[in-house]
């Protein structure tokens, strides 16, 4: 066990240390039931925000509702696109589309049915928000949501 650990440490130390930058090669579902490789999300060189959420998660829906109020302004100013990835499992998955539509969200919605994407991106709890630059490199991330966090996110988008 110790030796495995040491080997692992060696592995880590030899590779240049970096935060997650690239989107993982993982399939998610679209609302229409079709599969989609998450690596292929795109916004023509403009910034992308990825938000992990669930219908049962209050801070998540708060964050997405608050951003929805200013989303048009954000888009006008920066062409940013928000991609909301639901981690709802089969218990609440059928509520995702009704919830999104009744809330009037204009986001691109994906479902991560067995948390494969969530694991690959190191998300342990929701909400968890990522910001991608024009090269689709992850340059910022934030865990959790409290009121007003969207201002910090928008400041980061403006820096791009």
């Amino acid at each position: 066990m110790k030796k495995i650990l040491i080997s692992l440490l060696l592995l880590v130390s030899t590779v240049s240390f970096a935060q997650i930058k690239n989107l993982p090669n993982v399939d998610v579902k679209k609302i229409d039931g079709s599969s989609f490789n998450f690596k292929n999300i795109d916004n023509n060189g403009d910034p992308i925000v990825i938000s992990f959420w669930a219908t049962w998660c209050k801070p998540c829906t708060k964050e997405l509702n608050n951003i929805a109020e200013v989303y048009e302004d954000w888009q006008d100013e920066t062409n940013v696109k928000l991609v909301a990835v639901s981690i709802d499992d089969r218990r609440s998955q059928s509520k995702v589309a009704p919830y999104v539509n009744s809330s009037g969200w204009e986001y691109e919605i994906y479902i991560d049915p067995n948390s494969d994407l969530k694991r690959a991106m190191g998300v342990s709890t929701v909400p968890h928000t990522f910001l991608l630059d024009k090269d689709k490199q992850i340059i910022w991330q934030h865990r959790g949501y409290v009121e007003g966090d969207e201002y910090e996110l928008f400041d980061e988008i403006l820096k791009l």
Binding site: S7, L11, T14, V15, A18, I20, N22, G122, V123, S124
Partner: peptide, 28 residues
């Protein structure tokens, strides 16, 4: 076990050459 070390070393230098990406998460 020495073999494991060697493999890890080889592997890590390979990774380095290829500029892969290391990431993860921690919880306590």
């Amino acid at each position: 076990m020495k073999k494991l070390f060697l493999i890890a070393l080889l592997f890590s230098s390979y990774c380095y050459a290829q500029e892969g990406e290391i990431h993860g998460d921690f919880q306590l």
